[in-house]
Amino acid sequence: MSIKSVFDSGYLKLLRSCAKIEFLTDMGCSMEWIEKIGRSIGKAGKSFGGTLAFSGKVLARMLRRKTYSSATREVLVNQIYFTSVQILPAFLLVSILFSSLLVGIVFQVLKDFGLTEFFGHVLMGLIVTELSPIFAVLLITLRSASAINVEMAVMKSNRELKTLETFRIDLMNYLVVPRIINGMVSMVLLSSLFAIVLMASGVLFSGLIFDMSVDVYRNILLNSTSFSDIFIALVKCAIFGFFITLIPIRFGLRATSELTSVPVVVSGGMVNVFLAVLIIEVLSLLTKLL
């Protein structure tokens, strides 16, 4: 009898403890979830702060004359060659095709909706100052930023970065600065080229669709062009170029000596590049509105 009663009370205790444990686990789960969110936000903030700090360091180096040794200049030339010069024929061809298509469609839509009077503003305000940088960003991100990200990660995994450090070659001067300058220069030049090609195809399509003479087209363009918009677009291109090369470098440098870390840092880098592009685009639009 006494044994049973002890057993019973033990059973009850066990039940209570189970309930208690379950309750705690539930609470634990919800707490963990909130903690997770907090951790992610903290991590994102830290990463953002880190990127800004790294940007500051790079900018400081960029402004130092000593940074530009013969080796750095050679890397810069090579980078510009691979990013812009090598793809120039293909870029021009794609620009002509894409811009013709784009301008043709936009003009036809404007005509169909009876918005002919806004054609200059649409051409300059939307296509030239907004779409041209995006087109160049896409090209440079897909072709160069991804390559830079992989290159950095592989160099880190192969201990090649350690080699440079061993020979007292500054990674920032030799690897980071020329790549970032290349990003900025290529972005500005390629998006300008795209915009010029676009405006040239605009002459053709304004004649075909609106039966517009070159003089009228010129006048409309001049009236709807704002130097502040062009300035903002060029600055935006330079900022795009800065970040779409800086972020892949930063993420590439996070790789470990294991090759399996390469895809991880590459995907992380590219996602962050995409986010950076969105943020810069939004900021530029806000600047325009203000």
Binding site: V77, I80, Y81, V85, V185, L189, I196
Partner: peptide
């Protein structure tokens, strides 16, 4: 040379701009 090509590209594009 690669240097010449890069220089030509930068000069021409900057001039057009």
């Amino acid at each position: 040379s690669r240097d010449f090509k890069v220089g030509l590209f930068i000069v021409c594009t900057a001039a057009i701009l």
